[in-house]
Design a protein around this nucleic acid. Structure first.
Length: 272
DNA sequence: AATCCTCGCAACCGCAGGCGC
DNA sequence: TGCGCCTGCGGTTGCGAGGAT
């Protein structure tokens, strides 16, 4: 038995949304709230697939979206997050208030990738292009920094790696317990740079015999990812807010920012 | 002025995980 | 415990706008 289609395609519109459809969707969600996407189109009088409605709302109509160009700070944040998380756009978006995963994904593919290549950096490995492989194709991996742990291309996975950091206060507290991966060799400047980004991340080996899902999102705990044999844990940011970038105090929790998924959304206007 | 080409973004699609029954 | 539904994610596609020829 196959999967049921998400909607009856014969009677649904596709393609660009009209102003009227947008208005209907906005009005319906204002009255009834988000959710129940499957039944929403019918209830709202829209000839659209529920998934399409959700996408339109999430990526375009949500009032807390920050439209407009990405700032240089956002660029750098995206690059750093991508170096750590890879193409986990939703996780990256969760750390960029007002930005959507789709928007960041598009921005990455159209701007940042090109920018990194022009700077001689491999956008996938975040290492210099001429360092990614030698004539024999063997990786010349030189451990760089604790927050630059890209196990996808690492020759070996450290037996024990944990990277912890305090809530976003940008304090210089960090612990590294590593077999192969250590912070040794970093200059003070490099260490300073690494401390610029506090992600509340921890990385540990998945316990033998335990079955770890590829992606585990639990609203009551951390976000876990299997990267090779290692588990990357992104702590649920209950006390983290990136609003400092927009002028709020560091470490201050903006109550409007916390999204129901535990990550952050941006609810206040820039000028407020 | 017309056509072609490129780029950027919105939207689509398939899949996987969570959750309720 | 297994099954089916719902939701969310990430890769891909299609189209419109703007620039080049």
């Amino acid at each position: 038995m196959g999967r049921l289609p998400c909607c009856e395609k014969a009677h649904t519109n596709k393609g660009a949304w009209t102003k009227e459809e947008d208005d209907r969707l906005i009005h319906y969600i204002r009255v009834h709230g988000e959710g129940s996407w499957r039944s929403l189109p019918k209830a709202a009088g829209l000839l659209r697939c529920g998934k399409s409605c959700r996408l339109r709302w999430m990526n375009y109509l949500r009032p807390d979206l920050k439209r407009g160009n990405f700032s240089e700070d956002e660029d750098q944040l995206i690059i750093k997050l991508h170096s750590l998380l890879g193409n986990k756009w939703s996780l990256i978006a969760g750390r960029l208030p007002g930005r959507t995963d789709n928007e960041i994904k598009n921005y990455w593919n159209t701007h940042i990738k090109r920018k990194l290549v022009s700077e001689g950096i491999d956008p996938q490995t975040h290492r210099p292009l001429n360092e990614t492989s030698d004539k024999n194709g063997t990786a010349k991996h030189k451990p760089t920094a604790p927050t630059d742990l890209d196990f996808r291309n690492a020759p070996t996975v450290p037996k024990t790696v944990s990277v912890t950091a305090p809530p976003l206060g940008f304090a210089k507290s960090e612990s590294i317990e590593a077999g192969n991966c250590t912070s040794s060799g970093m200059t003070t400047d490099e260490e300073e740079q690494q401390h610029e980004l506090n992600l509340e991340l921890s990385i540990g080996i998945s316990s033998a015999g335990s079955v770890e899902s590829k992606r585990k999102v639990d609203s009551n705990s951390d976000y876990r990812w299997l990267v090779g044999e290692a588990t990357v844990v992104v702590a649920k940011p209950t006390a983290v807010c990136l609003c400092w970038q927009l002028g709020f105090q560091r470490s201050e929790i903006c109550r409007n920012c916390e999204h129901k998924n535990g990550l952050f959304r941006y609810s206040r206007g820039l000028s407020s």
